[in-house]
Amino acid sequence: MRWINRRPSRGATLVLHCLPFALLIVAYLIGSAIRLEANPNDKLLPSLATLADTVNRMAFQPDPRTGDYLLWSDTAASLWRLFAGLGISTALALVIGLLIGLLPVMRATLAPFIAFVSMVPPLALLPILFIVMGLGEASKIALIVIGVAPILIRDLSLSAQALPREQIVKAETLSASTWLIGLRVVLPQVLPRLLTSLRLQLGPAFLFLIAAEAISADSGLGYRIFLVRRYLSMDVIFPYVAWITLLAVIGDRLIDLARRRVFPWSELEGAR
């Protein structure tokens, strides 16, 4: 049989799913054991026991200095910034993206500008943001919005423009106003797409969040990583990276779930 036609069985699929993860863990354990044998205090690849100990300390023991449970207070601070940034971006995308997609006048006014803005590297703006908006929460949220919103706006307006022209014409023959066409024809079709592109922007959003937190903060997941980086505390960094990844994966799944629940029509072909 050709390889292109070979499908793994259910059990084999599960094994194959786990294989890369298992390989990564085994490679880590081997490397860690070798380094720890040469230097029991090595911080680069800490042992599983050290990692477990650190996770316990960060997540389940109050910090002796502040009394906070660091992992949870960091997570709360970061997620708040992330939600605020993504929420503002999504709202902007919905309004501006729809206007650009729907109205030729708005398209002529805003489309080139948004296309231009979306090419500005957001991290290069960071020093300016910090001076204009201060070192507080505003500049961190603004960085996420600047990084994410233009992409969402462009994606939404493009998918609105990609709708078959016939649909619009048909609605017009039924005497629908511009407002009604936007609300009843275009919006239901682009909203699922907005959620999908939001999913794809989760990664960049985390990148901007961590970059902003690295520069100035007193809590947050990125803050903690860049703080303990000074001390090569990989026993903190590894669990934090794993945790951020997990949060991003959960966020991704939740948005997709929401899309399927709220807009079941967007999943007609994929229903299996």
């Binding site: 085994v26 490679a27 081997i30 490397g31 070798i34 380094r35 230097n39 690849l45």
Partner: peptide
């Protein structure tokens, strides 16, 4: 290969 990479560290 991964193990070799890890060893090359210290």
């Amino acid at each position: 290969a991964l193990a070799v990479l890890a060893v090359a560290g210290p």
